[in-house]
Design a binder for these strands. Structure first.
Length: 399
RNA sequence: GCUGGAAUCGUGUAGUGGCAAUCACGGGAGACUGUAAAUCUCCUGCCUUUCGGCUUCGUAGGUUCGAGUCCUACUUCCAGCA
């Protein structure tokens, strides 16, 4: 008998919002107070950060990727080490992504900008794709060594089962905004079939290893920006044996809230909703308002590593020459470790000198910034000041 | 002092008689949303919003229809020998 030590409670919901709520996800490795930002640690590490830094930052969980871990020789060690959380010395709640995103990023989207504006989504770049989809699964050419691998829903579930994260995702096919409606329909049917197979294989493995900590399985919703497809997939997956849901797909920025609204009208309210790969502040506000409980995104570390820092007045490039002699902190309104201890001039120097500490310090600040933003929004939902926070915050940030 | 070599963009270089300015670095600006990302894109002699125009291969001469390239002298630097 599988012991289900996983739960989601809705603690409060402001009366004037249809879907927004404050909640608590309880996993075998700890609690996640929602809404929450979940930093991404693709290869069992948040790039340029230690787990101790992440804990100090306020991170409640970390999301890794089945595809990347599977390609590493160290993959087989994760299970021996006692699971992902123990292996990376995080010991808190973890998520693993299914590898579904790589169907796009290494497939038709290979070396292309995966734009969130439909009119830019057709940007074509000469490339050789590394992922090939068929109805049964996907053939991947490893980005590490070029060797061929095959992912099916069963393979993804087996990997995620062995990694032992608290929350796993069904194997899906992410489409791009450039794909025509007919392809979206075809692809969605495939994602549905894969969802069925993901549940069957995941629950089978769970029964087999019933002494292990419970792993929740979230079903991933596709359907691009089409209301009929989004509602269809929400109804279909909403009736299945999922512990929560991941809202995925290339999503047109302007339609983000609307799309989340459609699926939330169809999905069971008492299960957690995760929005995959989103962390721009306006998207976060829009998504939480429409009932999203958790987010993950690479943006804080990626842009941080590349010299871009979040502040309440917007994002800026610390590598710019105008910060050469600026001894103020990265973000004057921030109390994080980086901002308390290091100057813009120093960080500018570190980037110029190609020193790795630059990436470490800015990644730390950016993770802190986004985690704190979502924490602040959570608090604003509790004391019914969400609308005021949203207005003043976004006005200042995008001014 | 002698012998040999070298001098091209901020730096190092490519260019061996036919529209000078290749590549790298450095410099500037920007991008990044389930991470092929400590990555990528654009600019980097001058003038011009653009179209385009102009200037430049150490210096001064020479040969040639034509010279960064060949010749002479000079300057500076490098190496070897004294």
């Amino acid at each position: 008998m599988v012991k289900k030590d996983f739960s989601f409670e809705i603690l409060s919901a402001p009366g004037d919002k249809r879907f927004a709520r404050v909640g608590r996800i309880t996993t075998p490795h700890g609690i996640i107070n929602t809404p929450a930002f979940i930093p991404v640690g693709t290869a069992a590490t948040v790039k340029a950060q230690t787990v101790e830094m992440m804990r100090e930052n306020g991170a409640q969980a970390i999301l890794s990727n089945a595809y990347h871990l599977y390609l590493q020789p160290g993959h087989s060690l994760v299970e021996k080490a006692g699971g992902l959380a123990a292996f990376m010395n995080w010991n808190g709640p973890t998520f693993t992504d299914s590898g579904g995103f790589q169907v796009l990023s290494l497939g038709s989207g290979f070396k292309k900008v995966i734009s969130m504006q439909s009119d830019e989504a057709t940007v074509a770049v000469k490339s050789t794709r590394h992922a090939f989809v068929d109805d049964d699964g996907v053939n991947f050419k490893s980005h590490r060594d070029g060797s061929m691998h095959r992912f099916t829903p069963e393979v993804s579930m087996q990997i995620q089962h062995s990694l032992g994260a608290d929350i796993c995702f069904s194997f899906d096919e992410l489409t791009s905004l450039a794909d025509p409606y007919a392809y979206q329909v075809e692809s969605l049917a495939r994602t549905h079939a894969w969802a069925d197979r993901s549940v069957a294989e995941f629950r089978r493995l769970q029964e087999k290893d019933s002494d292990r900590p419970y792993q929740a399985l979230f079903g991933v919703l596709q359907g691009a920006h089409y209301e009929d497809l989004r509602r269809q997939t929400a109804k279909k997956l909403g009736d299945m044996d999922f512990d929560g849901f991941g809202i995925g797909g290339a999503i047109e920025k302007d339609k983000l809230g609307e799309i989340i609204g459609w699926v939330n009208e169809e999905l069971p309210a008492n299960k957690p909703k995760h929005l995959l790969g989103i962390s721009e502040p306006n998207d976060i506000f829009a998504a939480i308002e429409m009932g999203v409980d958790t987010f993950d995104c690479v943006s804080p570390t990626r842009v941080g590593r590349n010299g871009s820092a979040y502040t309440l007045d917007g994002r800026y490039n610390i590598k710019s020459a105008k910060y050469f002699e600026d001894f103020g902190p990265l973000d004057p309104d921030c109390n994080c470790y980086t901002c308390k201890n290091y100057s813009r001039a120093y960080i500018n120097h570190l980037f110029k000198a190609k020193e790795i500490l630059a990436a470490i310090l800015v990644s730390y600040h950016n993770e802190h910034f986004v985690i704190k933003l979502v924490d602040d929004i959570r608090n604003s939902l509790s004391d019914n000041t969400f609308d005021a926070l949203k207005k003043t915050w976004l006005e200042r940030y995008y001014r």
